[in-house]
């Protein structure tokens, strides 16, 4: 991707409250570049509740409403229906939720909105734990990962919830996984989501330097390694078409390399890493990637 061709228009203000190197802040910045100014954000409790600034300041240059944790997709449904009634069908109503607000407490509202084919874009920025409250396990936390509520590592039987296919099973207009470490893919997917009509869902892997126990500088690198190791597969599903893997590395990097680059996995022994590699291999094989 030629970054020189990316628009210089920013929809975020400087001075936001994201931690240094935050993947969520960066993802928002670029998502808005694609979505443009006819966009508004509905935001349940998440790191972004803080990132967006303290009253009376705002980090976004598009309308934003904060909502309680479990409600994003439902609130967005109400917003979209209101805009339709106002004759402003063309406004992108975007839920911007974390993994907790999507995989866990917000899942019911998400499922409801998806089933009703609400014309909204739901973006889950997944940093794989409750980071805003200080790194507690969520159902997006990968097996083996340390969190403050899984101090000896998330048990391997707790496999990360398969949000992609959960949403796909609602047969929405568009579903994709993406990460800002793959800008081309990220931009294309947001563009597709923007142009599709109906319920659209984008699952973003979003690095959290404090929560993943990585140096802030390695934020993008770690997201990239997640894809290169097959831990996070970039794919999409357009309505009426089969699921498509949008990026496949020439060869997958051993998961060990990904795990050991992060403090949250440093306690893992060889045996556990091997087991995790087997789990990943099985997943990749099921996708026809191995």
């Amino acid at each position: 991707m030629d970054f020189r061709e990316v628009t210089n228009i920013e929809y975020m203000n400087q001075g936001d409250f994201a931690c240094p190197g935050c993947g969520a802040g960066l993802s928002m910045r670029h998502a808005l570049k694609v979505l443009g100014d006819k966009t508004l954000i509905v935001m349940p409790a998440s790191c972004w509740s803080i990132i967006s600034g303290v009253f009376p300041t705002a980090a976004l240059q598009v309308p934003l409403m904060h909502v309680p944790f479990a409600t994003a997709a439902a609130v967005a449904s109400g917003v979209k229906n209101a805009f339709r009634k106002k004759g402003q069908e063309d406004v992108n109503v975007v839920c911007w939720a974390g993994d907790g607000g999507t995989f866990d407490i917000g899942l019911q509202a998400l499922s409801g909105a998806a089933e009703r084919k609400e014309d909204i874009i739901y973006v889950c920025y997944d940093n794989e734990a409750y980071m805003n409250t200080g790194i507690q396990r969520s159902s997006a936390t990968p097996p083996g990962a340390w969190t403050t509520t899984t101090p000896t590592g998330n048990p391997l039987i707790y496999e990360k919830k398969d949000m992609f296919n959960i949403v796909v099973s609602h047969n929405p207009a568009y579903v994709a996984t993406a990460t800002i470490a793959y800008p081309d893919d990220f931009y294309q997917k947001f563009e597709k989501a923007k142009n599709a009509k109906g319920f659209r869902f984008i699952h973003l892997l979003s690095a959290c330097p404090p929560g993943w126990r990585i140096d802030s500088k390695d934020s993008v690198k770690t997201m990239r390694l997640a894809v290169e190791s097959g831990v996070f597969v970039l794919m999409e599903k357009e309505q009426g078409k089969p699921t498509k893997v949008t990026y496949k590395p020439d060869r997958f990097v051993p998961i060990k390399e990904y795990l050991l680059s992060q403090g949250r996995y440093k306690h893992l022994d060889k045996d556990t890493i091997n087991k995790l590699q087997i789990m990943i291999n099985e997943h990749l094989a099921s996708l026809g990637l191995l």
């Binding site: 203000n13 400087q14 001075g15 936001d16 409250f17 600034g53 303290v54 009253f55 009376p56 300041t57 705002a58 980090a59």
Partner: peptide
């Protein structure tokens, strides 16, 4: 109202 109308640019990060 709980409405933010100014920018975070006051927050020199």
């Amino acid at each position: 109202f709980p409405i933010s109308i100014t920018t975070t640019e006051v927050n020199l990060t």
